[in-house]
């Protein structure tokens, strides 16, 4: 089995994390998935703070917009503001289809914005495409450490 990405999934909805895991499990490559449901926790994971001192650096972050603690946009901006994190690819993955939300994410340095589709098959396809693109086609930035 081909090895996949180290993926950080941040989503406050465990059902959506479940669906994303389901989609990734159906991919050819097996990604290593870390999922977090809280914004503050996700930020401290990325910054390797507190209990996350030894946290891995994910290859890709899939980030929901609405999160408890601190929202996806804040996390995105924090990532782009930190030298050790700023090159990390971030895919925004949210139910919002509001132009304002989408614009803000791109303006804040998101690599891509994907709206969560309503139907199961489209949802699975969306996650699969993200995996296929970032793992199969995109050149990832070299690790800093």
């Amino acid at each position: 089995m081909k090895s996949g990405l180290r993926l950080l999934l941040v989503d406050d909805n465990p059902a959506d994390i479940g669906l994303a895991r389901e989609a990734l499990a159906r991919c050819v490559r097996q990604s290593e998935i870390i999922s977090l449901e809280n914004g503050v926790e996700a930020l401290s994971f990325l910054k390797r703070g507190g209990m996350y001192a030894d946290a891995i650096r994910p290859d890709l972050v899939i980030l929901d917009l609405s999160l408890p603690g601190c929202d996806g946009l804040t996390i995105l901006r924090a990532i782009r503001g930190l030298p050790e994190l700023r090159r990390m690819p971030v895919v925004m993955f949210s139910t919002s289809r509001l132009g304002r939300d989408i614009a803000r994410c791109y303006e804040s340095g998101a690599n891509c914005y994907v709206s969560k589709p309503g139907s199961l098959n489209e949802f699975l396809a969306a996650v699969r495409s993200i995996e296929e693109f970032w793992c199969g086609f995109a050149a990832l930035p070299p690790a800093i450490d």
């Binding site: 909805n13 059902a15 669906l19 139907s119 199961l120 949802f123």
Partner: peptide, 17 residues
């Protein structure tokens, strides 16, 4: 309403599959 409904729809479909 869409959010919880999306869960119901997705997981019943997953169950069916």
């Amino acid at each position: 309403l869409q959010e919880p409904l999306r869960m119901v729809a997705a997981y019943t479909q997953l169950l069916a599959e």
